[in-house]
Design a protein around this nucleic acid. Sequence first.
RNA 1: UGGGGCGUAGCCAAGUGGUAAGGCAGCGGGUUUUGGUUCCGCCUACCGGAGGUUCGAAUCCUCCCGCCCCAGCCA
Length: 565
Amino acid sequence: MNDTTKPTEPNPPAEARDFIREIIHGDLQAGKHSAVVTRFPPEPNGYLHIGHVKAICLNFGVARDFGGRCHLRFDDTNPLKEEQEYIDAIQDDVRWLGFDWGKHLYFASDYFAQLYDWAVVLIRAGKAYVDDLTADQIREYRGTLTEPGRNSPFRERTVEENLDLFDRMRRGEFPDGSRTLRAKIDMTSGNINLRDPVLYRILHARHPRTGDAWCVYPTYDYAHGQSDAIEGVTHSLCTLEFEDHKPLYDWLITNLPVPAVPKQYEFARLNLTSTVLSKRFLLRLVNERRVRGWDDPRMPTVSGIRRRGFPAEALRQFAEMIGVARRASVVDWAMLEHCVREVLNRTAERRMAVLRPLKVVLTNYPEDRFEEFEAVNNPEDVGAGTRRVAFGRELWIEQDDFMEDPPKKFFRLSPGKEVRLRSAYFITCQEVIKNERGEVVELRCTYDPDTRGGSAPDGRSPKATLHWVSAKHAVPAEVRLYDQLFGRPDPGAENDLVEDLSETSETILSPCWLEPSLGGMKVGTQVQFERLGYFCLDRDSTSERQVWNRTITLRDTWAKVQKQT
RNA sequence: UGGGGCGUAGCCAAGUGGUAAGGCAGCGGGUUUUGGUUCCGCCUACCGGAGGUUCGAAUCCUCCCGCCCCAGCCA
């Protein structure tokens, strides 16, 4: 089975893997907590992407490593952007990645009542006030990065007035944007997050979970830490851009009667070469129909990557390989590809498929004769067994595997040359047939009956082994070749992102010919088309038409050699 | 010019005062019925810079330089 999983290297003890685990290990040793509790807190305003995979693997991984638990908590505090579709898709994706939150599925919206009550506590303590300033005015009063802000004229309202106003905000007496509840901290702070941050805003919007129950919604800053506290989260892991929010996170925890004291720790978010991980941009690609949807195989979304055929194990391995640190970094996409190939090489069965067909006729092979050969399913895994592959006088081979006038290092078929057909016979090209335009349309070859199975009694061995499919038995299919969405490593660096989109990110080939054993596979099946790459049966397939996605090519040193010349 | 971070090979990343792990990419070679896999070797880092402390510093101190984040009633 898949127990062949071999770690790329011996795993270091959990407590030494990264600074986060080091901190957690220290806290556990010091007896600060009896168990770790983490959480993955997505906002359901889009699909998960590879950047989230890092956070998911970290949060769930830490919980696993230290015998704690990890919650899945939706940060659903902004009904303007959030949808049930996203809530469902996110759960699917996390599950597919191989993580289980058990019964710990939560929503920040579950805590709206508690959060509201605590806001009242702040008001009573004179630590929050209702502000009548408009959004523009708040911005003006906030000051700038270098100039301190000014107090709002409404900052010194009495507790009673604040209580009354906040209650009326909740009852829906005021229009959107007319008032906010703000924490009373320090308008002159160098940290802008402490300049009386907004805790509640009025939004007469229907929430995917609470419906019309509320027309005031807590902001992230107010909801997040308190949600952590309610759930008993011990280590609240987030990305670097929230570092400036930590003093506010701590201020709220300190000033509210919360049941626990969670701590926030930040790590660098994932960036990948030639990849854009911005939900806003991904949404644009979907809306402008530049891709087939959120799960387009070219999308860096979890669902896209899955449809493309990247195994969950490869993503987990990748997350482990890139590490966790605090330095802003850009990981080479090739590292992800390495993980994908590493997993697929071990697990994907091999099959033969011809994508750009060129006909070969074996002139010395009887027309009415057909035979079958035994082919190994996976040389990396003897347990995968063998299969029978049909053979006949007429075959399809890859156009790339023939050159009429080959350069010196070309080992494949050319006039007069002999090559091996994988698991079958040696053949020699005798004649090239062209059409009116001079294009090669058929090869006349002879086979050597003594090389049955692919080896010669005299020990000679051709430099090349080609994949092939018997024309009579072949199954037709559409194959979609995928490449990266962007043609440059730093999309958006000089142009609008859309201008950097690659023209060749998707190439559709049809008809392609597959060996018969590939008929009737189920969607999602992953195989290696020998010498070409790993492919995955797409959900667009129907009973009469198969569609295969190219997950990734095999490493191709011949392509490299060609490029150099 | 405010506040908060970060700077170790092309890219990730260990290293926590004793004289620089590992991985990816790249390059060269062996094995090979996938120009795949695998194996071997190479990639020999003035640890952002300059001072200082110390017998000894990537690790401690000072100054400087560079990069990232923050002025949503987004998260």
